[in-house]
Design a protein around this nucleic acid. Sequence first.
DNA 1: TAGCTAACGTACTAGTTCGTACATTAGTAA
DNA 2: TTACTAATGTACGAACTAGTACGTTAGCTA
Lengths: 221, 221
Amino acid sequence: MTSVEEPARPNGRIRDAARTKAEILDVATQEFARAGYDGARVDEIAARTRTTKRMIYYYFGGKEQLFTAVLERAYTVIRQAEQELDVEHLDPVAAIRRLVELTFDHHEAHPDFIRLVSIENIHGAEHIAASEKLGKIGSPALDVISRILETGQKSGLFTADVDAVDLHAMISSYCFFRVSNRHTFGALFGRDLVDPGRREHYRNMLGDMVIAYLTADRSED
Amino acid sequence: MTSVEEPARPNGRIRDAARTKAEILDVATQEFARAGYDGARVDEIAARTRTTKRMIYYYFGGKEQLFTAVLERAYTVIRQAEQELDVEHLDPVAAIRRLVELTFDHHEAHPDFIRLVSIENIHGAEHIAASEKLGKIGSPALDVISRILETGQKSGLFTADVDAVDLHAMISSYCFFRVSNRHTFGALFGRDLVDPGRREHYRNMLGDMVIAYLTADRSED
DNA sequence: TAGCTAACGTACTAGTTCGTACATTAGTAA
DNA sequence: TTACTAATGTACGAACTAGTACGTTAGCTA
């Protein structure tokens, strides 16, 4: 039952700044995602940590900065995943479809991240604005989309007039909504958007949609 | 400067249950949309009303029930708008495009509603679940989509294998995301999804996408 | 091994916030 | 006009919550 990172030290306290900080961030991520910024309780975060509330203020300064730190780490994880995108060896259509699938999978696998982003939007993205880190990260995914799009458009395969940012918005909106709005959508329309049994259907649907849009016959325009 | 519903009565109090209730709901909608459920302050709502906090508890029972009432009214307004949809005289392609445009416009025109729905999702749609009203409203839009889809599929114009609920999700996700996530998206990618100058572009983009998806050549499948 | 400091814990406070007990009055019906 | 009740206002309290003052100790370094 003993966790990996548990040096056997009967009742003396252990000093490990990095571990303490990481643990606070872990718990804070859960708590903020669970209850929203204002709903989250600093005391609750502290209680679920091996350390005390004092340490939250010691390392992060306050609730506001803690939430910013949580966001920073969450976005960093996402960006790292994006850096491992490896689809450019495929032809443009296959590459886009693969990218869509990976985006879809990634959203599904990180519901906490989606909740944090929803929460941050309720607050007008003020924490992102306050963070130096987050402005500069950029988005590897955007670069990938950009290059695929260029190849596809040059070859005439892609007829749609979109750039990478707009296409990214299109893909993300569907993936995001499916997770973020599943509760109200389920309650109102009686359909669980995250039902594993319908997963493949929705995954293909998005791919079909994006490909259909990009490659549609526009000769009549 | 005197508002329409202001009977001239110097300093005696006016008794009008309906008006008081409506005014509380108006202000509460703004306050909840502004700050989220936990961020909203009952005292703040009361202060911005011509009545007092006492009346909130008198009419609604508590903060929780007030939020539920706010949601109920917001959804009622949406459903009423949906009942005025008049697109079925058009051919299926034009009807869908028109429906998409109306959905797009409606989301843009009601950012407060979108915030409320985001907030309700953070809380797992528990207030919708607690409301008897909201379960039974149904969705006129869904019926409209359903009929258009049937016509289009029978005629062979629509080749996609979707039902009304899934198509509704597809259309909504884009319209919703554009408003709900505009802050984080803008902060991270430097593009304002609600920029009036790009409005037409996004509006057409969604129409093109949905039509392309529904009518795509699937002979190769 | 002495001493220093980063890391940590305890206990408390000031301010906030939902909710309510109690008092009052406008409008209505008899 | 009287009496009654729905509607309203005032004042307050109990519980919560972010943040802090102050004291302690682990572990490193000279």
